[in-house]
Design a protein around this nucleic acid. Structure first.
Length: 678
DNA sequence: TAACAACGCTTTTTT
DNA sequence: AGCGTTGTTA
């Protein structure tokens, strides 16, 4: 044990060691990209426990993604005694909040088995409200309403707290919907993402005893990615810090990229105002990237104003120059990137350590098409999530309604899937009654059947499915949750529906459901599983196999790769037009930080590229290189002559199919493969 | 109620 | 261009 104790401190540089061992009182660690912030955070936890300053259960550790949480959990587990291998209070803001709320649900008007709803459900609920209130969704779109609600929640405002100026009728209308929305959520015993955090704050503010319980318990609070917290999260933290005043926040102002989600960099920049006598540490030695990569990133970010300011340096090698390539079309870009990977990268690095980082997720498509064509393995991190697939969502909706009978959104989703002749008219009937009586759809169903208000055919099937719900709820008591899933899929006729419709896709759908049942076995109970489903991030998906990674730059935060490709550096795409239109200069700086995050993901090699035009929304658009390209320091960049790229394209005969002109290794391999099939 | 056509919106980023 | 929603017809 002595050994491990020495070990974790010896692995740190001086400033990291200071930051790790400074335990008492608030502190802010400004940690540049690749400066070992996760290492410091985990070492801190280990140090607190080793020094017997607190038990594992007295440490609250908040991260932004489940992946980050898991990684920390692993690292901490490795460095501690066998008998303490996990922190019960390590997780994302959302997962920890859910834990608080389940324990004290009654205090905020919920039942402890509340369900958490996602964007889809939110949207459906808003649509229902609009329908009932005769609001024209074309004039006031659910998306618009939701963005407002989100914004208000991030600022800690429930409907009664929102003040709208008289001359803003639109906002008043939205507020009106917000009121109904919150009311409905309560009746359905559900919360949305925003509620998880906001309701915790409400809980703590209205129940000093509960707040005291926790703020006394948490002797140490650690927060990762602090630059991306929003107002309500910062308040959440502040409340919990009340008794012990030991909060340690880690972050990097240059990596603040979530302002559109309500993140307030102000939290980070004014940390010392909120927490008096706080200590600030700056980690500036970078252990990740070569000097050239680092200088490129630094040069770029130096164009931003209002930075806290830090100078990243490395003791490592200067490495290769950062490559800057120009292509004629988006397709050329994809082709050439795949060729570079084939010719050079693949020989030196594992594909898992190669990543293509894009501004917007649709950009991955061009690359996917290329990789499919040449048979190169890839994974899209953050594309459609497994749990977003229709059949998976349907199955989960069954579980939800069984678990929690108030979940109207689940009820509505599956009541006529598979078809049971419970059509729109019947559902509307249920809706109207439920709304008038402030009850749920299931209550409405029972009541209206009683009153004989439902047509014979629908009535029979409705009774039938309601009985099944009842039976499954019984099953839940004495069967495993994944066994229940099989029973439901069988008895509801869902499996049969998929099997009967014999098209090619349904095979895959059945496979997905098998996978779903398998995935459920990783969880102890239904509640744990359902919570995972909604709070899981897209980044949580498979990391097995030798594959190139494709993802947005946002999704890449906190990750690192040997080689990074950054395509699509064109005005309008990066920096993105929409963001500039909405927020102007502020947005430009955030876009620049995004570029900075992208470059600093690279350990050994970085390739930046742009194309002179690409197909956008079905039509060809000429484009200009991104202004960020001009901001890259020339000394660290190798700019490739675009002539050599374009010439090749002019050479091949236009009569051929486009791809016939390509003689890349990947293309040749594909040809070989096709031959082998013949 | 299912099949099909017409329309219109999309693509910024996500816990 | 491609998808999902809405409207029309049998």
């Amino acid at each position: 044990m002595k050994n491990s104790k020495l070990n974790y401190l010896n692995l740190l540089n001086n400033i990291q060691k200071e930051a790790t061992t400074y335990l008492d009182g608030p502190c802010l660690i400004v940690a540049g990209a690749g400066s070992g912030k996760t290492k410091v955070l985990t070492s801190r936890v280990v140090h607190i426990i080793n020094e017997k300053k607190a038990w594992a259960s007295q440490i609250l550790c908040v991260t932004f993604t489940n992946k980050a949480a898991r990684e920390m959990q692993n690292r901490i587990g490795l460095s501690l005694d066998k008998n303490i291998n996990s922190l019960p209070w390590l997780g994302t803001f959302h997962s920890i909040s859910a834990k608080f709320l389940r324990r004290h649900a009654k205090a905020v008007g919920l039942n402890s088995n509340f369900t958490i709803i996602d964007k889809d459900d939110q949207s459906r609920l808003i649509k229902n409200i609009c329908k009932a209130e005769n609001i024209d969704v074309k004039k006031l779109s659910p998306k618009f309403i939701l963005s407002y609600i989100d914004k208000w929640k991030n600022k800690g405002l429930l409907p009664q707290d929102v003040i709208v100026a008289k001359n803003l009728p639109l906002e008043r209308a939205v507020l009106n919907v917000y009121k109904f929305y919150q009311e409905r959520l309560k009746i359905l015993n559900t919360c949305d993402f925003g509620d998880l955090i906001l309701l915790c704050v409400v809980l703590f503010e209205n129940n000093q005893d509960i707040l005291n319980l926790y703020s006394k318990n948490f002797k140490y609070i650690l927060v990762d990615e602090y630059q991306d917290t929003n107002f309500i999260q910062s308040k959440w933290l502040n409340l919990l810090t009340k008794v012990n005043n030991n909060i340690c926040c880690v972050g990097d102002d240059d990596q603040s990229i979530y302002s559109w989600r309500g993140a307030e960099i102000k939290n980070f920049l004014t940390f010392d105002k909120l927490y008096k006598n706080s200590k600030i540490f700056k980690l500036e030695q970078n252990y990740r990237s070569t000097q050239n990569i680092l200088s490129t990133a630094s040069g770029l970010i130096s164009n931003n104003n209002g930075r806290l300011g830090k100078k990243l340096w490395t003791a490592g090698q200067s490495g290769e120059l950062v490559k800057l390539n120009c292509y004629k079309t988006g397709r050329d870009e994809a082709t050439n990137v795949s060729d570079i990977i084939e010719n050079k990268i693949k020989k030196k690095y594992s594909l898992n350590n190669v990543s293509i980082l894009v501004r917007a997720i649709f950009q991955t498509r061009e690359f996917e098409e290329r990789f499919l064509k040449i048979g190169m393995g890839y994974r899209v991190v953050g594309g459609t999530k497994f749990y977003d697939r229709a059949e998976v969502k349907d199955s989960i909706a069954y579980l939800r309604i069984v678990y929690q009978k108030n979940d109207d959104l689940a009820f509505e989703r599956i009541i006529n899937v598979p078809r049971r002749s419970i059509g729109d008219t019947t559902v509307k009937l249920l809706h109207d009654w439920a709304r008038q009586n402030k009850k749920t759809l299931e209550d409405a169903a029972f009541e209206l059947i009683e009153q004989n208000k439902i047509k014979a055919k629908a009535k029979v099937s409705l009774l039938n499915i309601l009985n099944l719900f009842k039976k499954w709820r019984e099953d839940l008591k004495n069967k495993k949750h994944f066994e229940l899933m099989e029973i439901i899929l069988d008895e509801s006729g869902y499996s049969k529906m998929l099997k009967d419709k014999k098209d090619f896709e349904n095979e895959g759908r059945l496979e997905n459901l098998k996978e779903l049942i398998r995935a459920m076995q990783d969880f102890d109970n239904l509640q744990g599983f359902l919570e995972h489903v909604t709070l899981a991030t897209s980044i949580d998906e498979d990391w097995n196999g030798e594959k190139i990674n494709l993802m947005t730059i946002h999704a890449s935060k906190g990750l690192e790769f040997d080689v990074v490709f950054l395509p699509g550096w064109e005005e309008g795409l990066f920096p993105h037009q929409k963001s500039l239109e909405e927020k102007g200069d502020k947005a430009l700086e955030e876009e620049r930080r995004l570029a900075y995050v992208g470059i600093t993901r690279a350990k050994k090699e970085a390739y930046i590229s742009f194309s002179m035009g690409r197909v956008y929304r079905g039509e060809w658009l000429e484009s200009l290189p991104s202004r960020f390209i001009d901001e890259l320091p020339k000394a660290n960049i190798e700019q490739n002559n675009q002539e050599s790229i374009t010439k090749e394209d002019f050479d091949f005969n236009q009569d051929f199919e486009y791809e016939d002109g390509i003689e890349s290794p990947g293309w040749k391999r594909l040809q070989r493969k096709l031959k082998n099939y013949e």
